[in-house]
Design a protein around this nucleic acid. Sequence first.
DNA 1: GCTTGGGGCGTTCGAC
DNA 2: GTCGAACGCCCCAAGC
Lengths: 93, 93, 93, 93
Amino acid sequence: MSGSDVTGIAGDQLRTIIERIETIDEEIKALNEAKKEIFLEAKGNGFDVKILREVLRIRKQDQKERDERETLLDLYLTAITNAATPGAKKKAA
Amino acid sequence: MSGSDVTGIAGDQLRTIIERIETIDEEIKALNEAKKEIFLEAKGNGFDVKILREVLRIRKQDQKERDERETLLDLYLTAITNAATPGAKKKAA
Amino acid sequence: MSGSDVTGIAGDQLRTIIERIETIDEEIKALNEAKKEIFLEAKGNGFDVKILREVLRIRKQDQKERDERETLLDLYLTAITNAATPGAKKKAA
Amino acid sequence: MSGSDVTGIAGDQLRTIIERIETIDEEIKALNEAKKEIFLEAKGNGFDVKILREVLRIRKQDQKERDERETLLDLYLTAITNAATPGAKKKAA
DNA sequence: GCTTGGGGCGTTCGAC
DNA sequence: GTCGAACGCCCCAAGC
C-alpha cells in the first residue's frame, strides 16, 4: 500500500469513489431543482400541480406495465418451448 | 385556446410540461444507474457498500451544517449592518 | 397510575398493544406458510412457479392501476368543478 | 384435459391456484391494516410508535434465539442417543 | 402536523 | 451452497 496509508484501506480509491458519487448526487440535485422550476412555472400558468404529478405517475406505471407484460410473454414462450421439447437437456439450450 | 381543444385545458402546453419533466426524470434515472454501477464496482474492489453510504451521509450532513453556519453568519452580518444604518427601510432590501 | 407501576408508562396498555400485534404477526406468518404450501402443490402438479408469481403480480398491478385511474378521474372532475366555479370559497365545499 | 382447453395448461386448476393465493393475500392485507390501526391507536394514546416497533423487533429476536437454542439442544440429545446406540443406522431415523 | 411518496435495508426466492 | 434479484417494511423528507 502506498504513501502514508497505515490503515490497510485503499484511501485513494475510496476518495475517488466518494467523489464520483458526490458529483452525481450534485447533478441529480440540480435536475430536481429544474423539475421544481417547471412545476412552479406550470402552476403560474394555471395548471394543477397535483394532477400533473398524478399524470406523470400513471404514465410511468403504464410504461412499467408494458415492460412487464413483455417479460411475461417471454416467460410463456419459454415455458411452451420447454414443454414442447421435454427431452431436451439443459446444456442443449 | 387553440385547435380541437374543447376542455379548457391548454393541451399543447400541458404536453410540453409533461415531456420536459419526463426527460429530466430519464436523466435522473440514468444518473442513479451510474451510481449503482459505481457501488457495484466498489463492492467488487472489496469495499463495504453500506459503509460507503454512511460516509456519504455524514459528509452530506457536514456540508449542510457548514451551509447553515454560513447562512447564520450572513444573517448576523445583515443585522449588524441594519443596526448601523437604522434609517434604511426593509422594503429597500 | 395503577399497581406497581413506577415508570410512568402504562404497562398494561403497552402489554396489550404488543400482544395484539404479535398475534396478528403470527396469523400473517401462518398465511404465508399456507401460500408456500400452495406453490409447492402447484409445482407438484407441473405448474411453473415463476410464471404463477408473475401472473399474480400483474393481476395485482392491474387492480392497482384501475384504482389509480379512478382517483385521477376524481381529480380531473374536481379540477373542472373548481375551474367552473372560481368564485366558490373553500368553506362552502 | 377438459373443456375448451387447447393450450395444454390445466385452466381450471390454474384458476383455483390463483384464486386461493389471492384470497390469502387479501387476508394478509387486512391483517396488516389491522396492525396499522393498532399503531395509530397506540400513537393516539401517547405511545411512541418507533419505540413500539423496536420492542417488537427485540422480542422477535429473543424468540428466534430461544428457538435456535432449542434446536441445538435437540441436536445434542439426538447425537447422544445415537452415540449410545451405535448399531442404529441413519436410514432408520 | 399529517399524510403521502421516495430511498434504503433486510429478507426471501429462484438460478447456477 | 452461494449468488444475485425481487419484494415488502421502515424511515425520512417534501407537499398540503
